[in-house]
Write a protein that binds this DNA or RNA. Structure first.
Lengths: 327, 327
DNA sequence: TTTTCGCTGGTAAACGCTTACATTCGAACC
DNA sequence: GGTTCGAATGTAAGCGTTTACCAGCGAAAA
């Protein structure tokens, strides 16, 4: 059109397909540059039925946990030349479903992290032809593969470690109810205590926020008999708890051991450094994106497998291992 | 088509435009639900020339700074029903330009944060019809409004505060060269010291990472005479510096005062809590998105203004104010 | 020189919507 | 009851690409 050629030739040049002679190629390229021409992606994806974009559905972008997750996803996406359409803050299933619909025709597949959403409502919300990968999802949703952190195993290992150090009365600050990860970590806590103990175990309510950890810490400081160790369902609550204990004059780890879950960056820097469970969050993002990319390229290959990412105990000072060993 | 109606009526029902009788409306709605029909967004935006999506170009998603920024953007976008297409890790201008082109036809406008990119190359990369808002950008780029943090003012206030506390030899750990924010913070540092002092002021090289702060801290610990205060260009470097000082047996704030910039969450939790400059990062994200949304709705209204967001001194313990006052 | 063949480059259909315009149909008016 | 009018619905064009298919053209073969 602009360089005395048809739209077809332009398309062929820009996509490197078809056969064009060098002179034509140059003419088109020059003209494109001159006119600052950029193909309209919406039109392109309308006909190619490919958007080279991945939808990412998150419950919230708040906090370091999600920043790590997105980072893993973003890196992997960038490596594959994929774009990311993010959507967050989906409190309930309805909102998530709405966001999912709005992505139709905009994305080639979706990455869904929805700890409150069960398999059924998810299946209902997902256009059945859209490749999807689930993150930290409760149940196995029929058709989509899932990637989950081994919350149960990590929590169990943490509490077993505390028991091995000789702590007798171990309390737990739980995450929000109805949340899959909360439930798994609680289950791990109980499993480590065993049948006899877990009935008497102290479990405090929390909702993953620092504030709720702080409140739990106040209760713990006042409790009689006071537990000698606490396992919080995530690091932010452990930190809130630490602050409350400090205010109450209860020393960590001398008077009470304290541990968390996630290994967010702050955990290393507080005093005392927090013993915690490292979840491979970045890796979770990376692997799930890779799986989704595969599923998109070859729909047949998609198996609704459930991949569990292992966790790792990160022993720092808040669990009092050094003191215990010294004795 | 499915409910004995034409595509036009379906469109009218789904968009709430045009006139349709209630019975028809119900028929369409029922059929749509039954067939799980969702309009194809790419096709829709091809004709409406609206995507209801904002492109976000960031240098990197790493760290809490960006997580805060995205959060502000995301919230504002969600309030307006806009989607976010994020793209990160653009080291140089070429990569950024490439990412920008790939967004053509996918977004209604872009939010660009590119501390290394100057106005000229940006203007060249942006399709001139695409509304854009710049974040923390060096120069005023011709047509786009810009939102910047008052790095100069914040740094100046911080260093003036240190001087007011009586510190005599104040060092600076600088950010990466060629970075706009680094340069502004350094300029603020120098301005606060005044003409006479700034020539002799100790400025250490850094690149915003904890590691570079650590190295600067080692140098500071060994320096003779040792400065009595340090202002790091961001919090992560201040933290790295703190660790190095601690290892070297130099106490903060007794032996040396330490301050940072950004007020990332960690700053509150380390020991001693870090005195720093709070940048309204979330607000920066929110305001810039609002401005962009306005520019999209009404292109005429877009003025290439430069908005500067004020900063706030956050006095904690690492600057030794308490000790100084006590004397 | 004529025929055939291979490659380049053009024409037009199709992607799934929105919307201007045409058509239909019922009601109201004369 | 026929005409007019307006509201409801249908028809079809067009958004900017890609690509199947076809035409044209020059070189090689006969």
């Amino acid at each position: 059109m602009r360089a005395r050629v048809s739209t077809a030739s332009v398309s062929r040049v820009l996509n490197g397909s078809g056969a064009v002679t060098e002179p034509t190629r140059q003419r088109v390229l020059r003209a494109a540059q001159y006119l600052r021409y950029t193909p309209h992606e919406a039109a392109r994806s309308l006909i190619t039925r490919r958007t080279r974009t991945i939808g990412v559905l998150l419950p919230d972008i708040h906090g370091e946990y999600f920043s790590e997750l997105i980072r893993g996803i973003d890196r992997a996406a960038r490596l594959r030349g994929l774009h990311l359409l993010v959507s967050s803050s989906h409190g309930d299933a309805g909102e998530a479903a709405l966001a999912l619909r709005a992505m139709n025709g905009r994305v080639d597949g979706v990455l869904v992290m929805s700890p409150y959403l069960n398999a059924k409502s998810l299946d209902a919300a997902l256009p059945s032809t859209l490749p999807a990968v689930l993150l930290n999802t409760p149940e196995q949703a029929g058709r989509a593969p899932a990637f989950v952190i081994d919350d149960f195993g990590g929590a169990k290992a943490m509490v077993e470690h505390l028991r091995a150090l000789g702590y007798q009365r171990i309390a737990h600050i739980a995450g929000p109810e109805g949340n899959y990860e909360s439930a798994e970590r609680l289950r791990g806590f109980q499993a480590a205590l065993g049948r006899t103990l877990s009935g008497r175990a102290l479990v405090l309510a929390g909702n993953f926020t620092e504030e709720s950890g702080y409140q739990a810490g106040q209760q713990l400081a006042a409790a009689a008999p006071r537990p000698d160790a606490v396992f919080a369902a995530n690091d932010m609550m452990a930190i809130g708890c630490l602050l409350a204990l400090r205010e109450a004059g209860v020393r960590v780890p001398e008077d009470i051991a304290l541990t968390g879950f996630d290994d967010i960056p702050i955990a290393r820097y507080i005093t005392p450094p927090l013993t915690t469970v490292r979840a491979q969050t970045t890796e979770l993002g990376r692997q799930s994106l890779e799986e989704l990319a595969h599923a998109i390229e070859d729909r047949e290959s998609a198996r609704p497998d459930r991949h569990t990412l292992s966790t790792q105990l990160v022993i720092r000072e808040s669990c009092g291992q050094a003191q215990r060993r010294a004795r």
